[in-house]
Amino acid sequence: TDYEFKYAKAMEYFEKEDFMRAATLLNELQGVYRGTDKAETINYTYASCLYGLNDYIMAGHYYRQFVKTFPSSQRNEECQFMSGYCYYMTSPKPRLDQTDTYNAINEFQLFVNLYPRSERVAEANRLMDELRDKLVYKSYLSAKLYFGLGDYMGNNYLSAVIAAQNSLKEFPDTKYREELSFLILEAKYIQAVNSVISKKEERMRDAIDEYFSFINEFPESQYLNRAVKIYNDAAKNINFEETN
């Protein structure tokens, strides 16, 4: 019939990577063949066409739809991966809303859990690490923002410390660990310097503790010189308090 011909044509276009034509036909056929044995192929091909057209938002939507509609399909492994990958493609730069980054991580995680023996697991893990690093970088930026605000309308050094610590708590093995740790050290020290006398000593000691754990973890840090300087100044401060 007419539809059979369209179906054949659509598959032919898809093979030739003429995604635009294929997608137009498949979009129509989707409704016609709902509930038939062709539906699986149609839905899968449609999602792939959209992916080929770089429409990652809709492609991701149809991949997820596919996984839900055909839970026992052979193509599920690929579609689950692709649903994460489409989110990965739409995940914006770290300064913007990261909803899609979280979505991508969730979809990849689901993929890794469902298909632990898939050959794509390694790639899924690599992409997840990349996405997580993006999230850490985002929180690093916000910690740095608070650090930069300094004493503008309140104690922003404390905010910087908390923001950085939260980030380290959530992503302990990030590649920004050194930057975040140093930021905490520096913020704690400046906070101590700006403190009232009653809190100064405690905060200096806190900064010194921070210094020791920092050089312990990063003995060859690129911030070593600055860290040592902070330590010396802080130590002087405490000695000064004590000699008084």
Binding site: L96, K138, S142, L145, G154, L158, S159, V161, A163
Partner: peptide, 17 residues
Amino acid sequence: TKTHEHVVRREVRTKPG
């Protein structure tokens, strides 16, 4: 989705801590 986070965050008066 368009405005960079720091443009928003620096105006936020509720801060960690």
